[in-house]
Design a binder for these strands. Structure first.
Length: 399
DNA sequence: CCTCCACTGGAAACCTAGGCTC
DNA sequence: GAGCCTAGGTTTCCAGTGGAGG
């Protein structure tokens, strides 16, 4: 659509959309990979060096990458992999690169499905055993003499949820492969401590090489933002105050470039919506609120029905309450909808999950003779909650 | 120091949807 | 199409627990 050659139509399009603020908003999306990555030369060089043996048909070492969110781990990894693939295109080698975010593909099976997809085979989304899925992947790699690099992003989630079985199998798979094919693993993690949950054999194999990404400083964030501003916005639309604030807010957390860019994008959208000619610092402040609100809103919407009911049961109470009270109210709500209520054990589990999501606060406290229970209170604004819950048709009768 | 409350949270059994094989 | 298998969610069962009140 966008590469229509007719110059007039693109001029008209732009005029119709009244693009005073944005020039190319794609540069602010999280998947965007810039042509040049600043302040990450060391890491790029290092990862490049580690992976380069593949150009000589040798197996590169496995690699673990650490760093907080928004420090460029993902973008640098994808950048190096892209460049590597570009280079191998000129050769006859069958190099395949797979990238999976294991927080998104949250089970072992889904991870395998995506890895399979990256080497060109399709697995059904259910029905196969893990070992069968694994077998198909390794057989395909052997048969086609593929040299595969699999990047597992947010690998700590996979380990936390499903243990290190899959990693163990993946690291071991090379033992049964001929010289011509292999799997190299890149593990990317926010959490330095996740190593503790790994089997020693898995760790030693996965940790052949290690790279750490340190947080960006506020000045570095500012430079990154300035460059994105030039690509994404029209000239002189973004005030310096706005950029400084974005960099400052993101820097005060932990040098999170993704957050800085998100703030900038949403601030731009807000400015555009209110018809302002420029993006000012107040838009950035509004953006911070709006992002938080959206995060909560989506968190609630993606909850299963009983999770929503539990949340509603929490919100319908005053003061902090214990699990028993919440459960009683939950049962009443479920009955009103004609749903079979889940057990208290399950609701206790759901409450823990809601706590983890930051939607409620549910620390376990002991009240002596009054027993030991969770002390549950809502951690979000009721209007956001209500807005998100009323979107769900099945909950309509409760409002 | 002991009791005893009101759960917590681990473990295992059970259920369901859906693909596979024959 | 029957019978088998698995992942993921739920139920069942139950030992364990922190601390106010005795």
């Amino acid at each position: 659509m966008s590469d229509i050659k007719d110059p007039l139509s693109s001029i008209f399009d732009r005029a119709m959309k009244n693009q005073v603020i944005f020039k190319n908003k794609n540069a602010l999306r999280s998947e965007y990979i810039p042509n040049e990555l600043h302040f990450r030369d060391d890491q790029i060089t290092r990862i490049g060096q580690i992976l380069s043996p593949i150009l000589n048909r040798d197996k590169p070492s496995n690699l673990l990458i650490y760093g907080k969110t928004g420090t460029g781990k993902t973008v640098v990894t994808r950048y190096v992999l892209n460049r590597l693939i570009e280079r191998t295109k000129k050769t006859a080698m069958d190099v395949k690169v797979g990238y999976v975010n294991t927080r998104v593909a949250s089970t072992e099976y889904r991870v395998l499905t995506e890895l399979a997809h990256s080497i060109g085979i399709i697995l059904p989304f259910t029905g196969l055993s893990i070992s069968e899925a694994f077998h198909r992947i390794t057989e395909h790699i052997k048969a086609t003499q593929t040299k595969a690099i699999f990047a597992l992003d947010e690998i700590d989630f996979l380990v936390k949820l499903s243990g290190d079985n899959l990693l163990y199998e993946l690291t071991r798979a090379n033992e049964s492969m001929p010289q011509t094919s292999f799997i190299t693993l890149i593990g990317i993690s926010n959490d330095l401590k996740f190593k503790d949950n790994l089997d020693a054999r898995v760790l030693s194999s996965l940790n052949e090489e290690e790279t750490v990404f340190s947080p960006y400083t506020v000045d570095e964030l500012k430079a990154i933002l300035l460059e994105r501003v030039n690509i994404a916005f029209n000239t002189d639309v973004v005030t310096e105050a706005a950029i400084n604030l974005c960099a400052g807010m993101a820097g005060s957390e932990h040098g999170d470039a993704r957050r800085a860019v998100d703030l900038l994008r949403v601030a731009g959208e807000l400015a555009e919506r209110e018809g302002a000619g420029e993006v000012r610092d107040e838009h950035v402040r509004q953006a911070a609120q709006s992002i938080e609100r959206d995060r909560i809103f989506e968190g609630i919407q993606s909850l299963p029905i009983h999770g929503k009911l539990t949340l509603l049961a929490v919100s319908r109470g005053r003061e902090p309450e214990n699990t028993g009270h919440i459960y009683a109210r939950y049962i009443a709500l479920a009955k009103q909808l004609g749903l079979e209520p889940l057990t208290q054990r399950r609701i206790s589990g759901l409450l823990s999950e809601l706590d983890l999501l930051g939607l409620i606060s549910a620390p376990v406290i002991s009240q002596g003779r009054m027993g030991r229970s969770k002390k549950i209170s809502l951690a979000i604004q009721t209007d956001v909650l209500k807005a998100a819950l009323t979107e769900d048709e099945t909950l309509k009768p409760l409002f």
